[in-house]
Design a protein around this nucleic acid. Structure first.
Lengths: 342, 342
DNA sequence: CTGAAAGCGCTTACAG
DNA sequence: CTGAAAGCGCTTACAG
């Protein structure tokens, strides 16, 4: 058995300092009504005894945990490998730390789902707020949290046309619009867009931006073709081949993730097409891959770390002011590279 | 303000079920001494009232948090981008979930250090065990945890020749030995090894394995040159150029991380060398990059997810049996690819 | 400026 | 098989 060290409590400090536990407690929480002399004396004893307040007892008494629960992407396997995740995590930790909040990585058991985890976190009082990293259009969890008036925020856009409080996202329509416009300005006229699943809000937004740019530039909608796939290399390769075989002489491909764009470039090169000379390619997320592959790929940086940091701040405001925050937008940046002649 | 929902407590359930709070508590914890009839009745009331035990109160009473504190790599910025991290995290979460433990991502404020975070976690009783993801040779934190007899484990090898309890690692010497032997069997005779900093145990181990393989195959030690650098592409490029300029006709390079190996390959190709025809290259970590770059790179898979999962189990055994576990070894696998003619 | 007391919501020996 | 009581280590109105 682990040796039971005798925990030093507030009572021990009180006894040694010759004051009451209440006073010690007030010193801990910097209550200004305690005299300077008493404060110093108590602090001295705390130090001498090596006292540290027990967070759990404090949480119980205060009815708050100073902890934010993190709901990770559904399929951690894949999602964790996307650099978006660690970058967002970094922002989350940074913001939480600044406010002295901890992050609880709660565990969704296999066979279970997010919603269950969310309810569990709320009902057991383990956390003061919940940060959801998925961004499906449908979301029982956010509905539930809203009903319970429990502080939360979502990275991405959880629902369409319903309500847009408590989430943090890029302006995906605008980003897609800018990227497409940039390609049109480069002279491209037949563009393909490869997206993720249509159940993702981000997909819908990027399609809108893509179409809008075509329209504004007088490009026939039929020359803007949309392919729906997954966030992996295979999707890129598959559609690249389709694009070649279509015989429609595309001159640009926009992919919704760099790994997809990478697959597109690879397949083109295998088939003897040159990027960017024969066809331009651009992606999203500005990942390591987009920077380091043979033909560096133009890509939209979405600033995942800021998304994470802002999401935490939304929760904190929700906790402290009880406000359901409006949607917060994080800026994006297009990094222009060789795959589009830059 | 957030609406204060009246929390349903054990007392409410007790009242409705016509029993004492003690009995309800026993039902919650599946105490077998409670009669079947009482149990059913209590469960029914719990359900009817929507009761969920308060984890914080429970933790205080039990003097345990059922939470494991995770100490992330020092410089989260860089480290989080290494795929090792998310993969290990996945294993950690999986193992913790299975045992119904939560993970606390504790925040090391900037300007502070790991050790401080560790002490804070221990002294505030926020966690029952600590998992350290860094693996320096020197480590105040592990010393401290050992002295306090506080359950912990480390991924990697924290110290040399001192004590080897409570950590989980690959057999880095063996892995390096195997990889080197494989290259020697391919006919290579002048090998370069590019490592990370010498303060890392993994560096020392891989150097040992490298040298041992050379020795066993009667290759002159002078033909096995060691370069010390960082875990990035630049290191690879820099030493690749040195290798070319040395005029020593190297025929293989082993890099301690795929991103370094990638830099090596890039620089060689820029200089007109062919990989693998002119020189072979191999790396460690079997990252996406090693699989997806133009010349796929032979790499050692270290199974980061298993390292994470095992690290959690070591902590759990430490918590429950009080045993300082011996070192646990996780297997590795060499993936042979084009960069070494496979 | 400080203390006595009640309370946060559980658990668990002890007694029956 | 079940209950009354004490306790986990804090916080915080209330009173002075």
């Amino acid at each position: 058995m682990v040796k039971k060290r005798q925990r030093i409590t507030i009572k021990d400090v009180a006894r040694e300092a010759g004051v009451s536990p209440s006073t010690v407690s007030r010193v801990i929480s910097n209550n200004p009504r305690i005299s300077r002399k008493t404060t110093e004396n108590v602090l001295k004893q705390m130090k001498r005894l090596g006292y540290h307040p027990n967070a759990i007892a404090r949480n119980l008494a205060r009815n708050s945990s100073r902890t934010i629960g993190l709901i990770m992407p559904d399929r951690p396997g894949e999602a964790l490998l996307n650099p978006f995740f660690p970058e967002a995590l970094r922002g989350i930790i940074k913001s939480a730390t600044k406010a002295s909040y901890d992050i609880l990585l709660s565990s969704t058991p296999p066979g279970s789902d997010d919603f269950r985890t969310v309810r569990e976190l709320v009902s057991t009082a383990k956390v003061d707020g919940i940060l959801i990293m998925t961004s499906k259009i449908e979301n029982k969890s956010t509905q539930y949290l809203r009903e319970m008036e429990f502080p939360f925020s979502v990275i991405g856009s959880p629902y369409k046309d319903v309500d847009d409080s408590n989430h943090v996202d890029n302006d995906n329509m605008q980003a897609s619009h800018e990227l497409t416009t940039y390609l049109l300005e480069k002279g491209c006229r037949r563009l393909a867009l490869i997206t993720g699943g249509r159940f993702l809000t981000v997909t819908e937004e990027r399609i809108k931006g893509f179409k809008k740019a075509l329209e504004e530039n007088g490009v026939d909608q039929d020359d803007g073709v949309i392919f729906v796939g997954d966030f992996n290399e295979e999707t890129g390769k598959k559609y690249a081949r389709e694009i070649i075989q279509s015989g429609k002489e595309f001159d640009a491909v926009v992919a919704t993730d760099d790994v997809v764009a990478y697959g597109v470039v690879s397949a083109f090169m295998e088939e003897g097409l040159r990027v960017p000379e024969d066809i331009m390619v651009a992606g999203f997320n500005n990942s390591l891959l987009s920077r380091q592959c043979t033909v560096p790929i133009t890509s939209v940086e979405i600033h995942a770390d800021l998304l994470g940091a802002q999401a935490v701040e939304v929760i904190l405001e929700n906790i402290h002011k009880g406000e359901q925050q409006k949607k917060r937008i994080v800026t994006h940046t297009i990094y222009k590279r060789k795959s589009t002649f830059d």
